[in-house]
């Protein structure tokens, strides 16, 4: 099966039903996307498919109908995405394990939402679980990233 991830095309020899998460992690070696619960409760596995946030633990390889972007494709340590830069500036991460998913969810939201208020952020980001409870800094970083994206 053909799969485009971070603008690179791959031929994948795997079951149609294998969740995208495990294709990314165990076949393509893209381990920035995390396994946390396997049932769309934690959001650590969030990727973009054609720009829309999707829980990669839930979508089967055969159902991936678009281009996949993972945290590695969003930005890099040398050239971080504005959302990642805001996460760095606010030192959001504690254990950091959920943060790939948090950042992917926030980036997808900000691509559509402009400058969201706290209530909007609460509606969109409450499906991403952070066991360290870094939430106040997540909120602050999203506001900051939204301003940066708005001012280009």
């Amino acid at each position: 099966m053909e799969l485009t991830v971070n603008r690179q095309r791959h031929q994948i020899d795997a079951e149609a039903g294998m969740p995208l998460l495990w294709v990314l992690r165990d076949i393509l070696g893209l381990t920035g996307t995390k396994y946390g619960c396997g049932i769309a409760q934690c959001g650590a596995c969030t990727v973009h498919i054609d720009g829309v946030a999707v829980r990669s633990c839930q979508i089967a390889l055969a159902d991936v109908g678009g281009e996949v972007t993972t945290i590695e494709g969003l930005g890099t340590p040398d050239a971080p995405h504005p959302v990642q830069q805001a996460w760095i500036d606010h030192q959001v991460a504690q254990c950091g394990y959920c943060q790939s998913g948090q950042i992917m969810s926030a980036a997808a939201m900000l691509a559509l939402q402009g400058e969201p208020d706290d209530a909007q952020i609460d509606r969109i980001m409450s499906a991403n679980l952070c066991r360290c409870a870094t939430y106040p800094r997540i909120r602050a970083a999203i506001h900051d990233a939204a301003r940066r994206l708005a001012t280009g």
Partner: peptide, 15 residues
């Protein structure tokens, strides 16, 4: 560890 944990490049045992 902040940059690595914000860019998906931090390696944990599971990775």
């Amino acid at each position: 560890d902040i940059v690595a944990k914000s860019t998906g490049t931090q390696r944990y045992g599971i990775d």
